[in-house]
Nucleic acid binder design. Structure first.
Length: 878
RNA sequence: GCGGGCGUGGCGGAAUCGGUAGACGCAACGGACUUAAAAUCCGUUUCUCCUUGGAGAGUGGGGGUUCAAGUCCCCCCGCCCGCACCA
């Protein structure tokens, strides 16, 4: 028999699907829908194994749901704006658009070679003017609805490249490209009011039951809700004449107010800035703090430092106490009010600070059963619950009650005519800054007019299109220095005005693309009827690296779109799944250079296993297994794999063995194993097809089901229906590795049946026909080309992709007999195959009758026999 | 530091409700076919002990609950991930 030829077959079936429009989403909105989406790729130029894994999973779900009668939407597009295109433009003198669209063409061809069930009619790239003009239109709606505002904000400024850098582009305080020392600059930037939904974005997480708990938790932490008190300490000005009469701060430990021994504010706090203006040594202190790098490590190592401003703050509950006010490096401007009170006894940071500056450490919470008079704080703050002490009216209370009482007292006290404190909820989440000073992004559609200020572009004038004639030979934003692009007239007064030269953060583009797929050619952002039908996305699949920002921004965007009437729901993604990474061994030459798997040959196995260099000699060290990455050169090119083994093999391997949420290790042996299985299926189907042809009519409709089945035929039927039932369940829960195991089992059963096939046995042909059909249909979503080829070879009607999912015959899942274990004192001694009809007493008798059981009991007395029907018998003897 | 996850054969991993631990795959070993090899097919494969047949141990370690624990509870160890001066 000829071997399966994937090269010829895969292209042929891809053409058939395309010509028949098999995967075009239907427009019949009365049918039940299912929206499967995988995170769309950045068009870097090549797909990688992570894409193969991601898109294979989505494809299995899409094809399975399609067979189950759903109108399936399974689209693909390109997250096409962003820095790499500009970098390429600078390095290779290619226009970002040209570079991007060429990459898209290359990657589209690669994706098509995978045989994915995508509706390519809906494809778009976020850099298409048709897409970003709708984004601009929606921005104008958000602006009108008050969901967008402008304010000054700090950015990392690279003085050499004349550009703004993202935090991750700042390495050790220097620009990643230029190496120049990065400056902090204040620019006026656009912000989306994501904090308007802080609480809703948090509480709605509870309803996202089909999301991984891990992702929900990460979002919860990111939003960072904490309940506390916003309060003021009155300032006693000792001659420095500051403008403020009080300092406002946020605390969650107002119970410990009596333990306060200082106040501290951030170096960026307005009051710090004001004081520094007339205090050069404070200015120097602030500059020193700034110089400490921005990396996490630097911050972690940085010692706590403070500068005593000389100001004093009056204790809210004890007018005889005055606390020193410091400017301190460990206080964050971005959280709360940028100022704190320090209670060293019950906060580790405050304790470190207090020890350094010899400030009081007054314990006000004391562990139960400990005498307050003898309780002392060493080098560790006491942060647990206990009994209040040294705290006037709070003494003797527990922490929770003390918080209540302290908050109430602050609320009843006035300072400057307002309550001195107020219970509030504080969030870590901050508004989303979307301005980027770059060319390759969606222009923010506003103009700046000297007379009218910031004016939105009229919708009929959209899109504000990017100019093509730009140069990247100079640093800075090409839009900024373009000869004519900026010049326009004010939509309100008609006077000469200037375009906004900032473009959107690319996270904006990906925050609504899933909605655009519902009506990708609409002349409005989204067609309401289409989104009402298709949204939410039923199953979204992507990498854990987008667990926070992309998903949170999309959730925000959906709410903003609801408020502006574009959609009718809050949550875009009903089901979310984060798949694991694809890893590979690493190889290193003697001189330390990384080697790619293609340059290495593996010899020996087990302890003898070692690597040799293909080109000449030289030791090669086999290194650890790492995520595939260019830097370690341990990548495998999907195109090579598809060329050598076929798309089906690659897809099968990606689904086998490893649970989809965990990392998978790509190995040569694994791919070969996958390929062998594919060939084995082809042989089994070939054998079966020959037998079925001999039997005459290749098709065996239901009504031809024989009255009688020989045991082997019945067993095969049962195996097929059991596999079908379990596989369906596994795919529904995205447990692809288990679904794969079910297919192996069925293939094994079928192989055994064929090995002793006798066409004269009652029901043999029918059972074979049925089992082959089920096997091929089960394989279909995973190895679709092989599935089609087998379907045709068996002489079945139509094409596999059009078939309905087979029904499970429940009666075949029920066995008359069941095998149960028999234990004596919890140890398994034997097993018993019995009729399901037996009563517990009969089962007990049968178990006690076993010779092995009698032996295990020996001369002990049977005290009790536990019978769990259809599961186990346990004889307790003593 | 805080939060979360995980720990099962040589390896990847099954075990959905507390009820036969190791499904399925990889690798290995033995056999068949072959002049030979590859491919394929059949079989064996948790460990230890003894003679077929058994016996004992076994899910990171220790304790507990239970007739019964990979699964539930407590303590400890190790690895991985996320967040990180969040007041």
């Amino acid at each position: 028999m000829e071997r399966y030829n994937h090269r010829e077959t895969e292209i042929r079936w891809q053409k058939v699907w395309e010509e028949r429009g098999t995967f075009a989403a239907g427009e019949d909105y009365s049918k039940p829908k299912y929206y499967v989406l995988e995170m769309f790729p950045y068009p870097s130029g090549r797909i990688h194994m992570g894409h193969v894994r991601n898109y294979t999973m989505g494809d299995v779900v899409a094809r399975y749901k399609m067979a189950n009668g759903f109108n399936v939407l399974h689209p693909m597009g390109w997250d096409a704006f962003g820095m790499p295109a500009e970098n390429a433009a600078m390095e290779n003198k290619v226009h970002p658009a040209h570079w991007t669209y060429e990459n898209i063409d290359a990657m589209r061809a690669q994706l098509k070679s995978m045989g994915l069930s995508l509706d390519w009619n809906r494809e778009f790239a976020t850099c298409d003017p048709e897409y970003y003009s709708q984004q601009q239109s929606m921005f104008l709606d958000f602006l009108k609805a008050g969901l967008v505002y402008r304010r000054k904000s700090k950015v990392n400024w690279d003085p050499v490249d004349q550009t703004v850098l993202a935090n991750e582009q700042v390495i050790d305080g220097r620009g990643w490209r230029s190496g120049a020392l990065v400056e902090q600059r204040e620019l006026t930037q656009w912000f989306f009011k994501i904090t308007a939904w802080s609480d809703d974005l948090l509480t709605a997480l509870d309803g996202l039951e089909k999301w991984p708990e891990k992702v929900r938790l990460m979002q919860r932490n990111w939003i960072g809700r904490s309940e506390g008190v916003r309060m003021s300490f009155e300032l006693i000005d000792q001659g420095s004449h500051v403008s403020a009469s009080a300092i406002e701060l946020f605390t969650t430990r107002h119970d410990t107010l009596f333990g306060a021994s200082f106040c501290a504010m951030s170096i960026d706090h307005p009051l710090s800035q004001e004081l520094a203006a007339s205090d050069p040594s404070l200015q120097e202190f602030i500059d020193d703090c700034r110089r400490v790098g921005t990396s996490e490590e630097d911050i972690e190592k940085a010692e706590k430092k403070g500068y005593d401003t000389g100001l004093k703050a009056l204790h809210p509950f004890d007018k005889n106490r005055q606390l020193p006010v410091y400017v301190a490096n460990f206080v964050l401007m971005d959280y709360g009010t940028g100022a704190i009170f320090g209670c060293p006894a019950h906060d580790q940071r405050d304790l470190d600070f207090a020890r350094k500056y010899k400030l009081d450490v007054i314990p006000v919470v004391v562990p139960r059963d400990v005498d307050p008079a003898t309780f002392e704080i060493g080098n560790e703050a006491f942060v647990e619950d206990g009994v209040m002490a040294n705290s006037d009216f709070l003494n003797g209370l527990d922490v929770e009650t003390a918080k209540d009482k302290a908050a109430a007292a602050l609320e009843n006290q006035t300072l400057d005519g307002k309550p001195q404190g107020e219970r509030t909820v504080n969030y870590r989440l901050r508004d989303w800054g979307v301005s980027r000073q770059r060319y390759w992004g969606c222009p923010i559609p506003v103009v700046h007019c000297d007379a009218c200020g910031v004016v939105p572009v009229r919708k009929e004038d959209l899109p504000v299109a990017l100019p093509d004639d730009v140069s990247f030979d100079k640093p800075g934003n090409p839009l900024e220095r373009h000869a004519t692009w900026k010049a326009t007239s004010c939509p309100e007064c008609g006077a000469a005005a200037q375009r906004e030269t900032d473009t959107f953060d690319t996270f904006v583009d990906s925050s609504w693309y899933f909605a655009r797929f519902c009506s990708p050619r609409a002349t409005v952002p989204v067609d309401r009827e289409a989104v009402d039908y298709w949204l939410p996305v039923d199953q979204y699949i992507g990498g854990i690296e987008h667990a926070i920002l992309h998903l949170l921004y999309s959730r925000f965007f959906t709410r903003a779109m609801r408020e502006t009437g574009h959609v009718g729901l809050d949550e875009p993604f009903e089901g979310m799944f984060t798949q694991g990474m694809v890893n590979h061994e690493t190889y290193r030459a003697a001189e330390g250079a990384w080697l790619s798997p293609a340059e290495v040959r593996i010899v020996g196995e087990g302890g003898e296993r070692r690597a040799e260099r293909l080109s000449g000699d030289g030791e090669v060290a086999i290194g650890s297994i790492e995520k595939m990455s260019k830097s370690r050169r341990n990548t495998i090119d999907p195109t090579d794999i598809i060329e050598t083994y076929g798309a089906d093999t690659a897809r099968w391997f990606m689904l086998s063995d490893s649970p989809p949420e965990r990392d998978v290790i790509w190995t040569e042996a694994g791919v070969e194993g996958a390929h062998r299985f594919l060939q084995r299926i082809w042989r089994l189907v070939g054998d079966a097809a020959a037998h079925l042809a001999d039997a005459g009519d290749g098709t065996a409709p239901e009504e031809f089901a024989p009255e009688e089945f020989a045991p082997a035929a019945l067993a095969l039927r049962k195996a097929a229906h059991r596999a079908l039932s379990e596989l369906g369940n596994d795919v529904e829960h995205l447990r692809f590795n288990r679904a794969v195991a079910r297919i192996y089992e069925l293939a094994n059963e079928l192989g055994a049946f064929l090995g002793s096939y006798d066409s004269n046995t009652p029901g043999a042909a029918f059972a074979l026909h049925e089992a082959c059909g089920i096997l091929v249909q089960c394989i279909g979503p995973m190895m679709p080309h092989l599935g089609e080829e087998c379907w045709a070879r068996l002489g079945f009607d139509g094409i596999l992709a059009d078939q309905s999912w087979p029904g499970v015959d429940e009666t075949l899942l029920l066995e008359d007999t069941v095998t149960i274990a028999v234990q004596v004192n919890g140890k398994r001694r034997d097993e018993l195959t019995i009729s399901r009809q037996l009563t517990n007493a009969e089962v007990e008798a049968a178990a006690l009758d076993l010779e092995s059981v009698a032996r295990a009991i020996g001369d002990k007395q049977v005290r009790k026999v536990i019978v769990v029907p259809e599961r186990i018998v346990n004889v307790v003897a003593a």
